[in-house]
Design a protein around this nucleic acid. Structure first.
Lengths: 132, 132
DNA sequence: CATAAAGCTTCCAGCTGCTGGAAGGTCAAG
DNA sequence: CTTGACCTTCCAGCAGCTGGAAGCTTTATG
């Protein structure tokens, strides 16, 4: 299978697929002309990566997950530990974004948003608290 | 005021302050020896940046907000438009993270996480659906 | 058979927003 | 006069790609 076809079946752009090879996540063979040739297993790994990345795992997490996937003697606890750490990280990000969201929504609400220059959003950013 | 002191009052590391100058967000004067010297207004701008970044605005948004802040004839609608677009973006990210969170929490829950190799997390990533 | 279009290759640069570190100038204290 | 704290510039690197140039190969068409 050539790269253009793998794009479809793995759901990843060719550039990304080559990049994943460059950083050692997948090792396709080469044809005589130098073209990459992907086995079903290569495509499998790429799909794995596509899903793991879609869940927000970092590249290094993906590398660890893939190697656990390869390792038949793995302990599921190791996999779960990675996933739990990532889950915590996601929760942290959600909390952070919600904090921003709240402040921002409040400010947007307070701003009349017309042709006049006075603006609670700018006031807040400038550190002019409303005292409340 | 020299940079080390500005670090404290703006709540930004010196490296970042210099970087903000490099990209034209602030323009401190120089002493004869070449040292940067920050006016109260410079510090003010930096604090503005610190807050805006803390709310997750991009550097380009910050640039736009600062220039609206400078512009006394601004329309608050312009400020609000930037803030609303950013709010939408935050909401999008929260939704994305929540989607990940849900899938991942489900998988973590399903994984017994012991010394055995079978693992629903890896199965899912490998595309082995549980058919449900 | 010539040529053009499509697909492949490598390599280099750039994106965001800093951050670390090296090499070196300046200044106040002892 | 030296030490140490501060300041400067410049260059490199982080994540995770993405775009583009320059140049092969292969396939389709006239």
């Amino acid at each position: 299978m050539q790269i253009r076809e793998v794009e479809q079946s793995a759901g990843l752009p060719a550039k990304t697929i080559r990049y994943y090879e460059e950083i050692g996540l997948v090792r396709p063979n080469r044809q005589d002309n130098g073209y990459r040739i992907y086995s079903t297993e290569d495509v499998h790994r790429l799909r794995f990566l596509q899903r793991a990345r879609g869940l927000g795992f970092s590249i290094e997490d993906c590398r660890a997950l893939l190697s656990l996937y390869d390792e038949t003697g793995r302990e599921s606890a190791d996999v779960r530990a990675i996933a739990e750490a990532h889950l915590d990280e996601i929760d942290r990000k959600i909390r952070e974004l919600k904090g921003m969201r709240q402040t921002l929504a409040h400010l947007v609400h307070a701003c009349h948003g017309d042709d006049r220059p006075d603006c609670p959003i700018l006031d807040d950013l400038a550190g002019i608290g409303d005292g409340a």
